[in-house]
Amino acid sequence: MLKELGRGMWTTLRSMFEKPVTIEYPEVKRPVRARFKGRHELKRYDNGLEKCIGCSLCAAACPADAIFVEAAENTDEVRFSPGERYASTYEINMLRCIFCGYCEDACPTEAIVLGDNYELSFTDRRQAIYPKEMLLEPVRGEGKTTPQKTEPGEFIRSIPLMENPKD
């Protein structure tokens, strides 16, 4: 009887000096795996122009019908993306999304990427619909925000020149 009690107390005592498996979330966040599929991000080129061309193929690929895209035309005065077309409306309903990543697969410009963020909570169904402003990644480095005023003839190609995937 005492022997069993002693063994139990020993286990307790030992675990007090072990490294804990839990973390102090939300103060501490565990890094996600390389292929983690979290909240979507709409990517930009280095100059700040949006990669998304509003083709709606992500919406077509989406098995949960969570994406709504509407396109409009770029001009040199008001340019969002290279080429003729950009997404004037881009919404994802995060309540519908099943984070399958098909949108990422379908994207011809690698504009939509499932990111690291998994902290999705809402108090209202409307909040679950993320508009383009929330999905677009912030401008990095030298880039400017969109819409940009660009030189005529600089960004006339609709898709960045097609290349084989590098990695």
Binding site: C55, G83, E84, R85
Partner: peptide, 11 residues
């Protein structure tokens, strides 16, 4: 052909 089907209205 430019193969720009994603932005083409006919796509």
């Amino acid at each position: 052909h430019p193969l720009d089907c994603p932005v083409c209205d006919k796509g």
